[in-house]
Design a protein around this nucleic acid. Structure first.
Length: 112
DNA sequence: CGTTGGGCTCACC
DNA sequence: TGGTGAGCCCAAC
């Protein structure tokens, strides 16, 4: 049996990855939303950092900004790739001048 | 142990 | 689905 202390000592990133995997196909969540589910509503930026270092089994493409915008333009994962993956999930992504957008009211994940 | 920097967010123009 | 500016939390250095 592992102690609680040891469990809570797990890197924050790992928690983020775990919850990110729960996002169902066809839905998207915001960084802040994931942060809230982790009881740290203000840690949205950490969530972003966690996604950047996410292993391949984490659906990082389903995590976007609260405004519905895809935050990455040209970092590690191209925004285009994220768009492609989202569309494969059935999410409609719209192209704007300031970037790619998803209708959060339609595709926003609502965990119980 | 202080500083820095992020795939952010919110309040306020 | 504006544009800034300041605050936020955690990990890396």
């Amino acid at each position: 049996m592992r102690s609680n202390a040891q469990r809570s000592a797990l890197p924050f990133y790992q928690k983020v990855h775990a919850i990110a995997k729960k996002i169902p196909r066809g839905y998207v969540a915001s960084y802040g939303q994931l942060a809230s589910l982790l009881a740290t509503p203000r840690a949205a930026r950490i969530v972003g950092a966690a996604m950047r270092h996410a292993p391949d089994d984490v659906p990082w493409q389903r995590v976007i900004a609260s405004s519905g915008r895809i935050s990455i333009e040209n970092i590690e994962h191209p925004a285009e790739e994220q768009v492609r993956l989202l569309e494969k999930d059935g999410v409609v992504v719209e192209r704007r001048e300031s970037g790619w957008f998803v209708d959060m009211k339609k595709f926003g994940w609502r965990p119980k």
